[in-house]
Design a protein around this nucleic acid. Structure first.
Lengths: 216, 216
DNA sequence: CCCGCGCCTATCGTATACGAAAAACCCGCG
DNA sequence: CGCGGGTTTTTCGTATACGATAGGCGCGGG
C-alpha cells in the first residue's frame, strides 16, 4: 500500500470544491479570503493556491482586486458540459470496459455499490459517489488525461444536478441506468456501454433542461 | 475599449506556460521556486499560484515536499490529446463557423494571417499563433467551456509539436491545411470545416506518431 | 431634494521574514 | 564499495506588513 502525503493546498482545494458543488457557497457572492482561511484554520497561501486551482477548473471566476466568486450557473453552460461529456464519455467508457483488469472491475463494482448505498439521503454524498462511479468506468482505459477531463466535467455537472434535480423521480431512472451501465461494462459489451452511457447522459441533460428552464 | 487589469499571478502563469511549452524548462528537473521567483522579480506567492494553475492545466506535476516538475511527454499522452481534440474541435469549429459575426470572422482571418506571418522563423511564436488560430475558429460558437478546453488541449499539444516536428515539411502541409480551413470556415461550410479540421488534426497526430516513435 | 465629490474602510495582491519538516547530499566508517 | 548519520537545501506553511483598489458613506453644492 502506497501512502500519500497531501499538502494543505490540496485538502483546502477539495473542501472548497465540495462546498461549491453542494451549493454551500452561494453563487455570485464574493469569497472573503481572510474569513475563509481563518475558518479552515490555514493561512492565505494554501487557500489562494486552492482558489487559483478552482478558477482554472472552471468553478470560480476572479476579478482583479475584487476577489473570487462562484461562477454563476447557466443553461448554456449546462448544455455545454453535457455536450462535451457526450462527446467523450461513452467511447471512453466502452474502451475502458475492454481493457479493465480484475482489480479495475472490482473497483468499478465497489463504486457502483457505494453510489447505491449512498442514495437518497445526503445529496452531496450522492454527488461524490456519482462522480466516482463515472470516473471508475473510464479510468481503466489508462488514459490519464481523458479520465481527468471526465472527472472535471462530472464535477461541473454535479452542481446543476444538485441544484435542480433534488425533487424528483430522476433518482430512480438514474439508478436503473447505472445498474444497466455497470452490467454491460462488466460484461465488456462495448457497444452497449457506449449506447447506455450516451442515453444516461442525454436523459440527465434533458431532465436538467426541463428543470432549469422551469426554475430559472 | 475595455481595459483589463492583470495580477502578477496571471502574468507569471503565462510566462511560465510559454517556457514550458517552448521546452525552455527541461522535463523532469525540479523547478526551484526561489530561483525562478527571483528571476522573474516576483515573490513566491504569485509564483506558487501560477504553478498551482499550471499543474491543474496538466503541464506540471507536483509531489508533496519535492516541488513541481514539467510533466514528461509520452506517446500515450500525445495520442490522448489528439483523440480528445478530434472528438471536440471539428464539430465545435463547424458550429462556430455558422454563428460567427462579422467581427469574429475578421478576427479569425487576422489570426490566420498572424500565423502565416510568424511562420518558419521562431517556433514559439508559431506555436502561440497556431493556438490563437485554432481557438479563433471555435470561440464564435459562444461555448465558453468548449473554447477553453480547445485552447487547453492546444497548449498541451503544442509541446509535442515543438519538440518533435521542428525539422520538417510538416510546415508546408499545415500551412495549406490552415488555408483550406479558414476558407471553408469563412464560407460557413460546416461540413467541409469539420472534415478539414479532422483531417488536419489526424495528419498532425500521424506526423507526431512517426516523429515520436522515431526519436524516442 | 438630488447629485457629485472626496474621504474611509474593507479587502485584495504582494512582499518579507521566519520556522518546521521533508528530502537530498555529503562524508567518514566499516 | 556500500551504508549510516548529520548537514544542507528546498519546499511548505505561518505571520505580518503595506500599497492599491473598490465600494460605501457623508457632506456640500446645485
Amino acid at each position: 500500500m502506497t501512502i500519500v502525503v497531501r499538502t494543505l493546498s490540496d485538502q483546502v482545494f477539495e473542501i472548497v470544491l465540495e462546498r461549491i458543488v453542494s451549493g454551500d457557497i452561494p453563487t455570485g457572492s464574493p469569497i472573503r479570503q481572510d474569513a475563509l482561511a481563518a475558518e479552515l484554520g490555514v493561512s492565505k497561501i494554501p487557500l489562494r493556491e486552492a482558489l487559483a486551482r478552482l478558477e482554472q477548473e472552471g468553478l470560480l471566476v476572479s476579478q482583479a482586486n475584487r476577489g473570487y466568486t462562484v461562477r454563476p450557473m447557466s443553461a448554456e453552460q449546462a448544455d455545454e458540459i453535457y455536450a462535451l461529456r457526450l462527446a467523450i464519455e461513452p467511447a471512453a467508457a466502452a474502451c475502458a470496459a475492454a481493457e479493465a483488469t480484475a482489480r479495475d472491475r472490482a473497483e468499478a463494482e465497489a463504486a457502483y455499490h457505494a453510489l447505491d448505498a449512498a442514495a437518497a439521503e445526503n445529496l452531496t454524498e450522492v454527488a461524490v459517489r456519482n462522480r466516482d462511479f463515472h470516473t471508475a468506468l473510464v479510468r481503466p482505459g489508462g488514459r490519464v488525461l481523458t479520465t481527468q477531463l471526465v472527472e472535471r466535467l462530472a464535477v461541473l455537472a454535479e452542481r446543476y444536478v444538485i441544484a435542480h434535480l433534488q425533487p424528483a423521480g430522476r433518482e430512480d431512472r438514474a439508478h436503473v441506468e447505472h445498474r444497466q451501465m455497470i452490467d454491460a461494462w462488466l460484461a465488456r459489451d462495448g457497444k452497449t456501454v457506449e449506447a447506455l452511457v450516451t442515453q444516461h447522459l442525454s436523459a440527465t441533460r434533458d431532465d436538467l433542461r426541463a428543470q432549469f428552464g422551469a426554475s430559472q
